[in-house]
Computed example of a mutant assay.
Amino acid sequence: MKESDQRHATLRINESEEAALMELLSFMYSGKLSTTSPSLLLDVLMAADKFEVVSCMRHCSQLLRSLPMTTESALLYLDLPCSVSMASAVQPLTDAAKDYLAKSYRDITKFQDEMLGLPLSGIEAILSSDDLQVASEDAIYDFVLKKLRKVLTCNDLDHEIASKLVTDALFFKAEAPHRQRALSADESSHRRFTERAYKYRPLKVVEFERPHPQCIVYLDLTRDECANLFPSGRVYSQAFHLGGQGFFLSAHCNLDQHSLFHCFGLFLGMQEKGSISFTVEYEFAARTKSGEFVSKYKGFYTFTGGKAVGYRNLFGIPWTSFVAEDSLFFINGTLHLRAELTIKQPQPPSLQ
Rank of each mutant, 00 (worst) to 15 (best):
F193I: 02
K296H: 06
C263D: 01
L335T: 07
L80Y: 03
L337R: 03
L33F: 05
V309M: 06
K298E: 10
P348H: 10
D130R: 13
A89S: 15
E3S: 03
E124I: 14
I123Y: 06
S290D: 15
N254D: 15
V134P: 04
G333L: 02
A239C: 13
T320R: 15
C82Y: 05
K50P: 05
A125Q: 04
P202M: 11
H252L: 15
Y297V: 10
F315A: 09
D256C: 00
N228W: 10
E72V: 05
S121Y: 11
S327H: 13
A162R: 00
V134F: 10
A97L: 08
L93C: 05
R7V: 02
D158P: 05
V323N: 09
K32S: 12
V217F: 04
K289I: 07
A19Y: 00
M22A: 06
R65S: 15
M57L: 01
Y105V: 01
F315G: 06
V134D: 02
Q62E: 13
E52P: 03
D220W: 12
S232R: 09
L219P: 06
F171R: 06
L314T: 09
E195A: 13
S26Y: 07
E3C: 00
Y105E: 03
R192I: 07
P231S: 07
F172Y: 14
A20G: 01
S128W: 07
A339R: 02
E283Y: 03
L157R: 00
K344G: 02
Y141T: 15
S30L: 09
L76K: 15
P346E: 14
A339G: 12
S321I: 00
T194S: 06
S189P: 00
C60N: 03
N313W: 08
C215S: 13
A48M: 07
R106G: 00
K298A: 14
R65G: 03
R65N: 15
Q214C: 10
F330D: 04
A74Y: 02
L229W: 07
G333K: 07
A48V: 00
S121F: 08
H59A: 10
R192D: 06
F293G: 10
